[in-house]
Simulated assay, not measured.
Amino acid sequence: MTHRVRHTKQRAAILDTLEAMNRPLSLDEIQVGARERCPGIGERTIFRNLKEMMDEYLLVRVFLPGKPTLYELPTGEHRPHFICRNCDQVFQLPGETPEVMSRYKAPPEFEIDGEDVVFFGRCPACKK
Rank of each mutant, 00 (worst) to 15 (best):
Met21Cys: 06
Gly66Val: 13
Gly76Gln: 05
Glu29Thr: 04
Val117Thr: 05
Arg6Pro: 05
Phe63Trp: 13
Arg6Tyr: 15
Glu56His: 07
Glu29Arg: 01
Arg79Tyr: 00
Pro124Thr: 08
Ile30Lys: 02
Val90Ala: 00
Asp16Lys: 03
Gln89Arg: 11
Glu96Ser: 14
Leu58Trp: 05
Thr2Pro: 15
Thr69Lys: 08
Val118Phe: 01
Phe110His: 08
Tyr57Gly: 00
Ala12Ile: 14
Thr2Lys: 14
Cys38Ile: 07
Asp55Lys: 09
Leu27Lys: 05
Thr8Met: 06
Phe120Lys: 03
Val32Met: 04
Gln89Glu: 05
Leu73Ile: 06
Ala13Trp: 03
Asn22Tyr: 15
Met21Asn: 08
Glu19Arg: 15
Pro74Asn: 01
Arg61Asp: 12
Arg35Asp: 02
Arg11Gly: 01
Ala20Thr: 13
Gly66Ala: 12
Glu29Leu: 13
Met1His: 14
Gln10Ile: 13
Thr75Ile: 11
Gln31Ala: 10
Ile14Glu: 01
Cys123Arg: 02
Met54Lys: 04
Asp55Ile: 06
Met21Thr: 12
Asp88His: 13
Arg85Gln: 10
Cys126Phe: 10
Val118Gln: 05
Pro24Glu: 01
Ala20Ser: 11
Asn49Cys: 03
Arg122Ile: 12
Asp113Leu: 07
Ala34Ile: 02
Cys38Met: 13
Met53Pro: 00
Arg35Lys: 12
Phe47Val: 14
Arg85Pro: 06
Leu73Gly: 06
Tyr71Pro: 00
Gly33Lys: 03
Arg103Met: 15
